[in-house]
């Protein structure tokens, strides 16, 4: 055990937990009725992952991104994706300019992607060409133009949104690009009580300013602690089995997977789930990842990575239902007890 990595001490973890708690409190204070969503978005940011928000207009997607940027004191840019949006409009372009010496040369004008948080609003309305321009930025966190690669500012997150209705004239994101999003988060409507608070407390929809902001050091500290959250081997095994079981030809695949899934999730999903589970454990103030952390992030990680077949469309089965079945039927521990024997918490 002496060769094993040292586990975080409570004294090391507690400050990080306090920071995450502060961030969540500020987000909850600014945006009403979105506590679980705030936690999920923060989990994604701590995992250094990109998030795809899916919901109707007017539900506060932009407000959420703006609030996060404000709390974390990060740069924030918003790009409204349209069909005529060109890659240069996002990444930046070279402009012919005259220098002071009178010579003319191509000067790079950075696009809105050079920021910490980029809100790609209605990303599915842009052409595939422009959507593909985001691939390198999301994966490599850099931009290569005219043979020159430019690093994006760190941290860099893409929070994209897409409208589930008005699909006419849109370009659905290809699987390769969907796979680069850590989470796909469904942005549901808030209930009437929350709406009443919004009406009374948010005149003109103005967001209140956060009364606490995280510093760059806080953010770096969070990322440092994230690196030391311990993932036990049984949990890693569970994640691996979970991802493998999304493939219909796998032995542990449940019946719904065999019936409705055409292609399972990629190894990138397993990596994403491991990172997201670590972040979830950090938010819970634990130095180790448990099965409950995996269960908390499994659906947002995998629901946009599963490719369902036509039978699922006919039966009106979505990825969420398939994943629910998968999580229920696959035992976390792999313990093969007889069906009539169960373990109960004392």
């Amino acid at each position: 055990m002496s060769d094993s990595p040292a586990l975080l001490k409570p004294a090391e973890l507690d400050p990080a937990t306090a920071i995450t708690r502060q961030i969540c409190e500020q987000m909850d204070r600014c945006l009403l009725g979105r506590e679980s969503l705030h936690r999920l978005v923060l989990t994604g940011l701590l995992s250094r992952g990109h998030i795809l928000l899916e919901g109707l207009p007017g539900l506060g997607k932009t407000a959420l991104v703006r609030t996060i940027g404000n709390i974390l004191q990060l740069d924030f840019n918003r790009v409204q994706f349209t069909p005529d949006l060109m890659p240069g409009d996002v990444l930046g372009s070279h402009i012919l300019q005259q220098t002071e010496s009178g010579q003319r040369e191509m000067i790079f004008e950075p696009g809105p992607v050079f920021t910490n948080i980029l809100l790609a609003d209605e990303i599915n309305r842009a052409s595939p060409k422009t959507q593909s321009a985001m691939l390198e930025t999301m994966q490599e966190r850099s931009v290569t133009l005219r043979g020159q690669t430019r690093e994006l500012p760190q941290p860099f997150f893409v929070i994209a949104s897409q409208n589930p209705i008005e699909m006419e004239g849109t370009y659905p994101l290809p699987e390769a690009q969907l796979d680069r999003f850590l989470f796909r988060v469904m942005f549901d409507a808030v209930d009437a009580g929350v709406l009443q608070r919004i009406i009374t407390e948010r005149r003109q929809g103005d967001l209140p300013s956060p009364n606490w902001q995280a510093s760059a050091d806080d953010l770096n500290y969070l990322f440092t602690v994230m690196e030391r959250i311990y993932l036990p081997k049984p949990v890693a095994g569970y994640i691996a089995r979970l991802v493998a079981a999304t493939h219909p030809d796998h032995a542990e695949a449940p019946e719904s997977v065999k019936q409705y899934v055409q292609y399972g999730t990629s190894p990138r999903a397993a990596i994403a789930m491991g990172e997201a589970s670590r972040a979830n454990a950090l938010l819970d103030g634990r130095p180790t990842v448990g099965f409950e952390d995996v269960a908390a992030v499994a659906k947002p990680v995998m629901n946009h990575r599963l490719i369902l077949n036509y039978q699922a469309r006919f039966d009106r089965v979505d990825a969420s239902r398939v994943l629910t079945d998968l999580l229920e039927e696959l035992d976390e521990t792999g313990l093969e007890l007889p069906a009539d024997v169960s373990l109960q918490h004392a």
């Binding site: 055990m1 949990v235 454990a281 634990r286 448990g290």
Partner: peptide, 11 residues
Amino acid sequence: GGLVMAAAEVD
């Protein structure tokens, strides 16, 4: 939360 599992691997 994984603490029992981690006990087999780390301190």
